[in-house]
Design a protein around this nucleic acid. Structure first.
Lengths: 411, 411
DNA sequence: CGAGGTTTGTTTGAACCTATGACTTACTGC
DNA sequence: GCAGTAAGTCATAGGTTCAAACAAACCTCG
């Protein structure tokens, strides 16, 4: 059996250890070109990736369960997972007795590896340490106003949280546009402090592991897809609402990205031509009627108490009066944009994050109704889901992106 | 060499002949499940598909050229193409002398096979006979008002145009929504005559070849991608303008489709909330300001001569006055919707079909400028291309879809 | 406590695929 | 006619999955 390596101390690239650079196990994305032909080795990589993804989606599985799930023979599963066990990415859990026959040995991610996760927002950032099975072990949040402070604080938090011996890679979800191939921040919409910061090289150099950077809503979608509410969905849109409006699209179980990471800027879709002036220079952007800023301005107009700090969650606490009507207006305005997406893409499922998720399932249902009303001849159900109250999708997505990019052969 | 079959009379499924049902060469899409693991046979299918696609994109290529293009050894190309030559899908063209060394034998599609193509519009339809290299050999167009007439005339034209001995399959691009898996027309927006017509079974039964049905703008995008202006593009949107507004999206060289073929209904994206009443029941749809109907109503308001029949092409003939301004207004209105798409998806390239394409390159450039103005901080160029005057994208796309679905393993 | 049934995981030989490198073929140019 | 060059073929090797037989480990039941 030509295993690629033996288990052992994490160091070196060709040792087969999953740590220490992108070539461990030869599973790195992009190794196989998009248009070129495939060879048997690619086949192995792809199937190993499928095994990893099946585990991510379904939790610990025995070889036998993997075989049925991937429609493959038990024998093949054994040879597929052998190098993954050898390199200590996976381990065998204790046998599960209780049923007839030889007890299965579920396979699961080894506990010794860690994923680094970073979320860069507008003026704040979070650094976290995540396990392979998607548990957020430890995290810390800090602020910044200029690039020098950001650099210093980011690296300091990283040093504290990351165990470089165990780290498989670092994923970063960043507000504003990102150049994916180089991992550089192109433009942070409201805080230009980080423009042109080569984030991936910075972290790769410091911590010696591969780093992947992507646009925030897309990272959030990866979180939903790998660890969250979208694990079993093939098609959905992950929508962030709040100080910006963004979307990450998942089609056929993969996260879409435009060329060089473009797209996802949902907020400046024009839905009300000639409407209010937007910060972006246009008029009638969705942003002008569905952002948290709009909600608070409108609350102030209605003279609601605490208007300047009101959230969707707050509005849900009140059962009648102007707050109630504002909540409905908010739902309707959100629905306007989502209905447009539904017309264009027809994915049928929308996962709300950010402020709107604070409204919970009730609010999501309200939005769903409004979306359905706006689809001329509804052919399929439209469902709107709210992310859980403790929303870790983006930070988990950043971690998941490491798995996604290292182990998922996108083909 | 285990070739699947020898060349010969087209009949039977397991003979390896590419005709006669979807199992010829074992290349049919869906043979390999989306989530399951891959086996060596899948690998062969995928690589054969890549060869076919490379030929579609680049024209006749020798084994050696294919080898460099697919980053594969010459020897492997020989084994990959052997079954394709054996089954007479491809042939060797005469050797090309003139340079040093052994002259190459370019490979190209055999002339003996045909693709059936159907476009179903609102009240009209076109049937065509297309060669594998994308030449439209013969076509005829007819009208219908009810389903019985449509059935009768469709089959009659098919009988006249299709040589069932040579036919590899039939592709259908249909206005209105389509259920892709079953090939049934779900809903034709303006002419409900064909609702629930099982189009694919009808044609498959009559002509004995696999039939694939999809939504018109998506078929149009396939035409651009396989035979047209988008052959070398990885990301673009193929936009139809006229009596409806639709879009087919291409990302990473593949045509996107929502679950069960949903999406693509660009026209009823709301861009002017509270605007004019639309036929769909909403207000301010893009359709109400960018359709051909809008253009003609507006022309009538401006008292332009021949307003009721005016086209974008006509407007381009005039160089000043109200017609010129109307043309600019039309471009601006089209740009509103395209800019929204660009915000959401960021593909950067838009191919115009239908009425707007009649305005030619000049009009496309006008639209491009307007789109660029609407992208807050333009990061990359936005290019808008006009389909050629004799626009065969949809009918060729319908034919291309047969190749696409039969030979392209979508994975 | 042991036999029989059942399920899991491994082994083995075969089949399918591409890679490599040497070999053959066929043309150009001198 | 000979060297040079490039295209295509062939034989062998290596990677991968498959099918079926085999071994291991547990449960049930008498």
């Amino acid at each position: 059996m030509p295993h690629l390596a033996s288990a052992g101390a994490p160091s070196g690239d060709q040792s087969g250890d999953p740590s220490g650079g992108p070539s461990g196990l030869g599973l790195v994305t992009g190794a196989q070109s998009r248009t070129g032909a495939l060879n048997p080795a690619d086949l192995g990589r792809i199937n190993r990736a499928r095994v990893i993804h099946a585990l991510q989606v379904s939790g610990p599985l025995s070889r036998s369960e993997l075989a049925t799930r991937l429609q493959i023979s038990r024998g093949s599963v054994s040879t597929i997972v052998a190098p993954l066990l050898d390199s200590a990415l996976l381990v065998e859990l204790p046998k599960v007795t209780g049923s007839n026959g030889k007890p299965p040995r579920p396979l699961w991610f080894a506990d010794r590896w860690r994923l680094g996760a970073v979320f860069v927002g507008t003026g704040t950032f979070t650094v976290a340490n995540v396990s392979l099975d998607g548990r957020l072990l430890e995290s810390s949040t800090d602020t910044f106003t200029d690039v020098a402070t950001f650099r210093r604080r980011l690296l300091r938090h990283g040093e504290r949280l990351f165990d470089v011996e165990a780290l498989l890679g670092i994923g970063v979800g960043s507000a504003g546009a990102v150049d994916i191939p180089t991992g550089t921040v192109l433009e942070n919409y409201r805080y230009p402090a980080l423009n042109h910061l080569p984030l991936a090289p910075l972290l790769t150099e410091k911590f010696g592991v591969p780093t992947f950077v992507d646009h925030h809503p897309r990272v959030q979608a990866i979180g939903d897809l790998w660890f969250g509410i979208g694990r079993e969905l093939q098609y959905f849109a992950s929508v962030y609402t709040g100080d910006v409006l963004g979307v990450g699209l998942v089609a056929g179980g993969r996260v879409l990205a435009g060329p060089r990471g473009a797209g996802g800027e949902l907020g400046h879709m024009v839905v009300a031509e000639g409407g209010s002036q937007c910060v972006c220079g246009q008029r009638g952007c969705w942003y002008t009627i569905a952002s948290l800023g709009w909600l608070r301005r409108r609350a102030a107009e209605l003279e609601l108490p605490g208007a300047a700090e009101v959230t969707c969650h707050d509005l849900g606490q009140v059962t009648d009066g102007p707050a109630r009507r504002l909540r409905e207006e908010y739902a309707a305005n959100l629905a306007t944009g989502l209905a447009n997406l539904e017309q264009i893409l027809g994915y049928g499922t929308y996962v709300l994050h950010g402020d709107a998720a604070g409204g919970g399932e009730e609010f999501a249902d309200l939005v769903a109704e409004q979306v359905a009303d706006r689809i001329p001849r509804r052919r399929a159900e439209v469902s709107v889901l709210a992310a859980p109250e403790q929303d870790e999708a983006t930070i988990l997505g950043a971690a998941g992106m490491v798995m996604f990019r290292r182990y998922d052969v996108q083909l």
